[in-house]
């Protein structure tokens, strides 16, 4: 992501320091992670200390300071999914991918995240891969879903 693009996102919010989180979200959405150069640019343009930006970028869950995998696996661990066995689904996916929630594998194939509620509790437990919902997913079925991704 080059500085021009970062500047455009900053300009969209009139360069206001109070829009810092909105600007970082804009970069995250477009680039899927927050490169250090982009953070430095934001710091410089908004006159916000880098230390504060670093706190924000690590405080909120939406931000990632490392590149994400090609495919994003979200496993819902909301209470409704939890009581329906989401932990067993998560454990199986961890074993299959070799990564823990918050991690990306070395081939940049999968990133694994837990989420707190996807708003479709009737389908719990739920696994979402690249935005597609897989409802009532049993641990044994996760491998069938994940094998389709390159």
């Amino acid at each position: 992501m080059d500085n021009d693009r970062v500047d455009q996102i900053i300009d969209k919010y009139q360069g206001e320091a109070s829009s810092l989180i909105q600007i970082l979200l804009g970069i995250q959405t477009e680039n899927h992670w927050l490169p250090k150069e982009a953070l430095e640019r934001v710091s410089e343009k908004l006159q916000v200390p880098l230390a504060r930006i670093q706190h924000i970028a690590t405080f909120y869950k939406a931000f990632s300071l490392v590149p994400k995998g090609r495919h994003e696996i979200h496993i819902c661990v909301g209470t409704a999914c939890h009581v329906r066995g989401a932990t067993r689904v998560l454990d199986t996916v961890r074993d299959l991918t070799g990564i823990k929630p918050g991690e990306t594998d070395l081939d940049l194939k999968f990133s694994l995240e837990t989420v707190n509620c996807l708003g479709c509790c009737a389908l719990g437990p739920v696994m979402e891969v690249d935005g597609k919902t897989h409802g009532k997913i049993a641990p044994g079925k996760t491998a069938d879903v994940l094998k389709n991704f390159e």
Binding site: A17, S18, S19, L24, L25, I56, F59, K61, A62
Partner: peptide
């Protein structure tokens, strides 16, 4: 941007100001 604690009113207001 994803923080449960921001449901708390003063935390939400801090977030509105562009802070953690």
């Amino acid at each position: 941007a994803g923080a449960f604690v921001c449901g708390e009113s003063s935390a939400l207001m801090t977030a509105l100001e562009g802070r953690a």
